[in-house]
Computed example of a mutant assay.
Amino acid sequence: MRPGLPLILDRLHDVPAQVVSDLGDALAQNPMAAAVFGDLSAVPPAARNIALRRFAAPELRTRFPAEQHEAIARAHVANLRAAHAARPEDPRIAELLHQLRSNGAEFEDLWSRHEVVVRRSSRKTVPHPAVGPLDLEREVLAAAGEGQPLLVHTARAGSEAASRLDLLRGLGAETDATRD
């Protein structure tokens, strides 16, 4: 990971933020991202790929409303296809594609659509067991050619989600020691 990114994450204390590779490998997350999306520090680095977790661990799908499943899956696949188009000979991409293809027809069906997208922003609702649903806007901040975008999730000022993020931030200090 580029050296400046952890410094930026440390300064984004009031919003969930994480650094991912262009393949969807979660490289780092701030405490708010761990509180909202789950702490990945205990997950082995090889198992931190967002797309692989989405397709290989169906129980994680229950964290998002059913009406968002297809859009989330399509976005992961289209983003991966963009990385593959940029580096078709990359062995890491080939291995990831092999893993994803071995997890059932859903990925293969989406891959066969040939959609290519590099996401810059999106909206999602993240159900949270402690504070309730969080309606978040995601901005993808990317340095040209680096392949390590910074994902920043925000809630509209004054919204219920903003209040819930504030509550979650307060709870974070109390629950950090007990989270898996």
Rank of each mutant, 00 (worst) to 15 (best):
G158P: 02
L52T: 00
L27M: 07
E137F: 04
E174Q: 12
D10Y: 00
E67N: 12
Q99R: 15
Q18L: 14
I50Y: 04
R48D: 10
L40N: 04
N103C: 13
E95C: 06
T175R: 07
L151K: 05
T125I: 15
A142Y: 01
R2Q: 14
A85D: 13
G24R: 10
A71E: 13
R164N: 04
G132Q: 05
L134Y: 03
A78C: 11
E174V: 14
A83K: 05
H84V: 09
L9H: 08
H114G: 04
E160V: 14
S41F: 00
A173S: 12
R119L: 11
H128Q: 09
G170Q: 14
D10W: 00
A75G: 10
P91C: 10
L165Y: 01
E106L: 09
L136D: 02
P127R: 14
P127L: 11
A34N: 07
L96A: 10
R169K: 13
R101A: 13
H13V: 08
T154G: 07
E108D: 09
A177V: 13
S163I: 00
E95V: 06
A34G: 12
H69R: 15
P91M: 06
H76M: 10
A143F: 12
Q148T: 12
L136W: 02
V118I: 12
R63T: 03
E146V: 07
H98D: 12
R92S: 07
V77F: 06
V19Y: 00
L23M: 14
V36H: 01
I8L: 15
R113M: 03
N79Q: 15
H69Q: 14
D109C: 01
E115G: 09
Q18K: 05
E106D: 15
G158C: 06
G158V: 02
A28S: 10
P65N: 05
Q99A: 11
E139G: 06
H69E: 08
G4T: 06
I72E: 08
Q18E: 11
T154A: 09
R74S: 07
W111L: 13
A82T: 04
G158I: 02
L165W: 03
A17H: 08
H98L: 09
S122D: 12
D90A: 06
P65K: 00
I8V: 15
H69L: 11
S122K: 00
G145A: 05
G104C: 11
R48K: 08
A47G: 01
S102H: 06
T175Y: 13
L141V: 15
G24I: 05
L5R: 10
